[in-house]
């Protein structure tokens, strides 16, 4: 039997750079209220959301990703040619083949990196980050680009008063590369397929086959609010704690908490349940960005670093959770 040479990568991996892209159009609650019977006060009290960004036809999944990815590469201080893998997490790129990652890699001038899309809903960033860390440490890629990108405005039922205000568009990206010491902790991740009905797309694309009776409405994301809230707050607080334990730290060691930006109420309740110390900076980007699914964590990370609320070298707990149901949590050192 031939002896296979072991793979050799970096000892450790870290996030080296982050970049975000928010669509130009800012949509306040007043615009949402044109189609639902609700109020600005109700929306803010239930979600903490005041505005969100909606993409124009030109701000495609690929275009937003190229912007965010380019910024992350520049922030990492490397060149696009050094990227060995491009991982794109999205649920709102409506052309399944080819993967949008290949187009993004090409437009970034990354040469011929491995490039593929993943579908892990609002946990997509954590899933991508975990894959990227594995690539860097086993030598499959010296640098990997992870992009979370969504145009959830395309999957929003604007006449549903429970969800019309929730979603936004945008792209967030990080570059993962070699490190001399651990800077991405073990990922605590998983799925609970028995709860797949709690967050879902209303219609399958199959319903739109030629000759069939197409549903009156385009597919949209729908959820069972109370069940999702309970799972997100109380089950995900346990997962967050497990990620801290896996990294060998406690909440006292944290500088920053970046949960998926689903809803301010979930964030507030998680902070309370986790008993996070006062000194921990909590990402609350959802107020002006809405829920951007896979893009929300890198977008929030980029904003915290840009505003100076967090700084390079800070220890951050990141946790994504959503449709699947799926989740992923890990502790990282901020770029």
């Amino acid at each position: 039997m031939a002896k296979i040479k072991p793979s050799q990568g970096a000892a450790y991996a870290r996030i080296l750079g982050v970049g975000g892209y928010r669509p130009t159009r800012v949509v306040p609650n007043e615009v949402i209220l044109e189609k639902i019977d609700s109020s600005d006060e109700w929306i803010r009290s239930r979600s903490g959301i005041a505005t969100r960004h909606w993409a124009s036809p030109e701000e495609t999944v690929a275009a937003m990703s190229v912007e965010a990815g380019g910024k992350a590469i520049a922030d990492a201080g490397i060149t696009p040619e050094q990227i060995g893998a491009v991982i794109v997490s999205t649920v709102s790129h409506f052309k399944q083949t080819p993967a949008v990652a290949t187009e993004i890699a090409d437009k970034l001038g990354a040469g011929k990196p491995a490039a593929f899309d993943i579908s892990a809903g609002c946990a997509g960033f954590g899933y991508g980050l975990t894959l990227a860390k594995g690539m860097v440490t086993d030598g499959s890629a010296e640098y990997a680009l992870v992009i979370g990108v969504e145009r959830l405005s395309d999957l929003t039922d604007l006449e549903d008063r429970a969800t019309a205000f929730l979603f936004g568009d945008g792209a967030g990206a990080v570059v993962v590369g070699p490190a001399k010491e651990p800077a991405i902790g073990p990922t605590v991740w998983g799925s609970e397929g028995d709860k797949s009905e709690t967050i879902k797309q209303t219609e399958s694309w199959e319903a739109y086959r030629e000759g069939g009776v197409a549903p009156a409405k385009f597919p949209a994301i729908t959820q069972e609010g109370q069940a999702v809230f309970r799972w997100a707050v109380f089950e995900m607080a346990k997962v967050a704690q497990q990620a801290l334990d896996a990294a060998g730290i406690t909440a006292d060691d944290l500088d920053v908490f970046i949960p998926h930006q689903a809803n301010m109420r979930i964030i507030d309740s998680m902070v309370k349940t986790l008993k996070l110390p006062e000194h921990v900076t909590v990402a609350r980007d959802v107020e002006t960005t809405g829920n951007t699914s896979a893009a929300s964590i890198p977008l929030a990370m980029e904003r915290l670093l840009a505003t100076g609320e967090a700084k390079s070298g800070d220890t951050a707990l990141v946790i994504g959770f959503g449709a699947g149901l799926v989740y992923a949590a890990t502790v990282v050192t901020l770029p």
């Binding site: 009290s45 239930r46 609010g225 109370q226 809230f229 309970r230 707050v233 109380f234 109420r265 309740s269």
Partner: peptide, 10 residues
């Protein structure tokens, strides 16, 4: 509200 109700229940 419905979300606080979940917290009450837990």
């Amino acid at each position: 509200d419905s979300l606080s109700m979940v917290e009450v229940v837990v």
